[in-house]
Design a protein around this nucleic acid. Sequence first.
DNA 1: CTGAAAGCGCTAACAC
DNA 2: GTGTTAGCGCTTTCAG
Lengths: 346, 346
Amino acid sequence: MDNTMRKPPRNRRKMQSVTMSDVAELANVSPSTVSLFLRKPEAVSAAASQAISRAIDKLNYVPNLMAGGLAAASSRAVSILVPSVRNAFFAETVSSMQTALKKQRLQLILGHTEYDEQEEEELVRMALSWAPAAIVLTGLSHSAATRRLLANVAIPVIEIWELGGPQIDAAIGFHHDQVGIAAAEHLIRQDRRNLLFLGARMHQDRRARQRCNGFLQAAKATGAAAKVVEHPDTASAEIGAMLLAEALRLHPEADGIACSNDHIALGVLFACERQKIAVPDRLAVIGFGDLSFSAACNPPLTTIRPSGDLIGREAARLIEEHLHGEKADAHRTIDTRFTLQHRRSS
Amino acid sequence: MDNTMRKPPRNRRKMQSVTMSDVAELANVSPSTVSLFLRKPEAVSAAASQAISRAIDKLNYVPNLMAGGLAAASSRAVSILVPSVRNAFFAETVSSMQTALKKQRLQLILGHTEYDEQEEEELVRMALSWAPAAIVLTGLSHSAATRRLLANVAIPVIEIWELGGPQIDAAIGFHHDQVGIAAAEHLIRQDRRNLLFLGARMHQDRRARQRCNGFLQAAKATGAAAKVVEHPDTASAEIGAMLLAEALRLHPEADGIACSNDHIALGVLFACERQKIAVPDRLAVIGFGDLSFSAACNPPLTTIRPSGDLIGREAARLIEEHLHGEKADAHRTIDTRFTLQHRRSS
DNA sequence: CTGAAAGCGCTAACAC
DNA sequence: GTGTTAGCGCTTTCAG
């Protein structure tokens, strides 16, 4: 066989104008030194470091994370799957997590499940194709296939915004039934005995349902009456107002209302104002979320404030620890709790 | 030289349990056929297709996008950089874009600039390391280095939520000064002559400033008086209420108020209610955003509704076209416009 | 329609 | 502290 007769190499389009080798060449070191410098600058001599820095600047080198991730068998990406970032709760978590992860040069890959386990499963599959450094899911409820996909991965799997069920790996959040209990107990402390829970989209939003269940259970425990009125659509002030109208039609004796979140509660306050229903004298109102308007409305809304921000930061911390090799005990659970903001609506 | 004396291969930890070769082996075809099947199923014979499908299912194969991206010189990721996803406007765009991109199996990599060009520059650098299929930025204002980084990339660069300045490549959004003009003209049509603009965070939020400028300019053009009262913090109902109080102290003659967004306007409505200021009789109020509460509050808020959703969908469409090779004319501009929602606050 | 082969740009043993 | 080397898992010519 005649090797000298080999055809010339084929044409491949280049992906990147300037590669690590270019930097190495200009800096007069080997590529692996450049690589080392980029990952552990302190392990490289001052002279080499300087030459490399200069070369990087001069060439405007941007490392290729795909190549790096492929070689290192793990990428600088973290996948986060939430129902929707339109929901202020998850937006807060995503935002705070992002801020915390930036310090570790990790990037967030975002996915929206729309409260659909099938959708989530597909997204988990796509997420895994990125060989992410960690994967973050919302809630504890997933399809069997999702669980199977995640059962044996070597990276942290973090379930957020829900506590109190079997978890895949780590979980960070709080108990939503306790939120409902706290709301009911608060209203009962205000001498309300005819309680109402107004909920939106509870057939899909498991956690809203849990809050509702906790509420009913706590009411029953103290002998107070408690009813539920719900609407299938996404929570909004408009739906809150509609729910109040229907609720008062069905249960005119009600004197204390808890809402599945502050959007609903705001609508309730708007409707009360229009119908001259005195809050809190005639009707005490408590929400969930402590959203941006909740302290400013008329009257200021009593609400339960979750810890969306803290959830994001704790998730980032867990990922950081794992990255630094601290083999955290699996199945860790972090309860970020919630706080009752007592304002004038109750 | 004795090749038989070679050291054994080093130990490398495996990244992935099941690879394309495993699938190929089980399906009795070559890896490249599997690859082809995955990318262009119609180019593979029915028999092979079936065998491959079966093998994929059986092995639970998940393709490695890093390897794919590296080989193909471009990834299935789209970078999107927004000031913050906590802001409902950007959350909407991110969400709608994500939904649209999913059909093309593209994933969103999210970054928060926090209205900081320096931050944005760093994020653009990180974004490029992913060899994304496209990169989406907010606004038309960027650091010189950012422009330089993006000047020669081969992928679509899409600037969203702002029109009316020099753009890097494509731009999708609307003219914010026209929003301000529309607001002023609307108030003037309602016979208001002492106009006020209440703004939050306008030293950072360029687009809010543009709306303000358009407002002032239109007022001046018709001979109406127009003043600005602003607050440095992020918009919220609380700040809206504070701004109203200060505004009426400084300009008690005001009879028409435009707000930099609906959070501010909501706070204005709350404050008016507390102080028994009749809206719209004594004071007409117009906001911007048409947020979830705007149609439900007391009185329902007249506001200008942007097209955050459409922006996301159009961006996705542009990316899709590029992916399918349709060499769209560069420097494309898509005006998604806005609509005035006339309600009872004016 | 299918397969062989040559990398994409980088990391991580390992040797020096 | 630095260089050599052998891939990571996939795509993409190109030949058959």
